[in-house]
Design a binder for these strands. Structure first.
Lengths: 191, 191
DNA sequence: GTCTATAATTTGATAGAC
DNA sequence: GTCTATCAAATTATAGAC
């Protein structure tokens, strides 16, 4: 459960980078090996199969992502600020990292994933929706809105994952901001 | 430019089905050949390279999709009805076909696509946004909304592409409907 | 932990007979 | 148009030396 350091950590870093650019079927053990300066056979020492490596990458990604979001009920942070933090996490993937959200890309190709990897992607979405629903349920700005918190949480997740896909394909970062600007529609349906 | 029939058409059908389930790197010429009952060498007769096949699949998909949407300015059809038609097209991919939107999946893995395929995906998104913006600009229900029509068009496209990813990964069709139910937030910001 | 060597399979693609 | 035959390269993975 502890985050691997050393070569194992480097391999996870490289795999995450490649998966977030080219998808699960878009990188090989040789790519990773060359990237971290060992031979592909040595990668198998750290991660016996690609499925296990993929699951480890997704698990670490989810843990980091949720840890960065923090406690959705933290009384020190207003719901609006938490939502801004959420949007900023996706924006950073696009603008700073020039990458997809790992699970947005893996989710798109979910039918071609080993079961263990698909399960991790599912978990990521479930945790994201739970976090968002918790934030949206907090009493604050505007009214609670017509749609239940879970529906609005799902919509925000889908909107931002889709925003990355569209903005990256159109090669226009501004597209993300245009889309993200509509998130307030869900946060405060009264407007 | 004419839509291929016969074996070429069958190959396109098979390739589209596979690409919408497993992505561009998730199917091979041999898969397609077995599917349509020929040998993989014969597939190359119809489509010399995988990149050309991929581009042809995406182009045919876009043409069909836009043709199905119809004229966004058709005075016989209300803007609301056109938006419903748009949402229904995505819903059909999920519920009836059990597939992704082709360009939603390809867009997610855009960095691993041959340039000609990526260009077709870009075109699909551009045409979709233009169609949606035309519908949203028509005078009708509610007010024009705060956000410009293009921003709302991008948001609807992103929302629905993301909805397919999330619903398929969570294996819950109802998730799509929950998300799609929020589309009216963009159509009529006044509620 | 990393290496060499290699197995076993799959991939996109071509040449040439029919 | 489709076939057989084949290629060169790439893939995941294993065995065993160091």
């Amino acid at each position: 459960m502890a985050t691997p350091t050393g070569k194992a950590g480097e391999i996870l870093d490289s795999a995450e980078r490649q998966a977030r650019r080219r998808g699960y079927n878009g990188f090989s053990f040789r790519d990773l090996a060359a990237d971290v300066g060992i031979k592909s056979a040595s990668v198998h020492y750290h991660f016996p199969t690609k499925a296990e490596l993929g699951a480890a990458v997704a698990q670490r990604y989810s843990e980091r992502f949720m840890a960065h979001l923090g406690d959705p009920a933290d009384p020190e942070v207003a719901p609006d600020a938490l939502l801004e933090r959420y949007v900023a996490a996706f924006r950073r993937a696009l603008v700073r990292d020039r990458q997809m959200c790992l699970c947005g890309l893996l989710g798109a190709e979910v039918e071609s994933l080993p079961p263990k990897v698909a399960a991790e992607v599912r978990r990521f979405f479930e945790q994201n929706v739970a976090w968002l629903a918790a934030v949206l349920s907090r009493p604050n700005r505007g009214a609670p809105g017509n749609e239940p918190a879970e529906a609005r949480a799902l919509a925000i997740l889908a909107l931002l994952e889709g925003a990355l896909v569209v903005a990256r394909t159109l090669k226009r970062d501004a597209v993300f901001d245009q889309i993200a600007g509509t998130v307030t529609s869900f946060a405060a349906p009264d407007g």
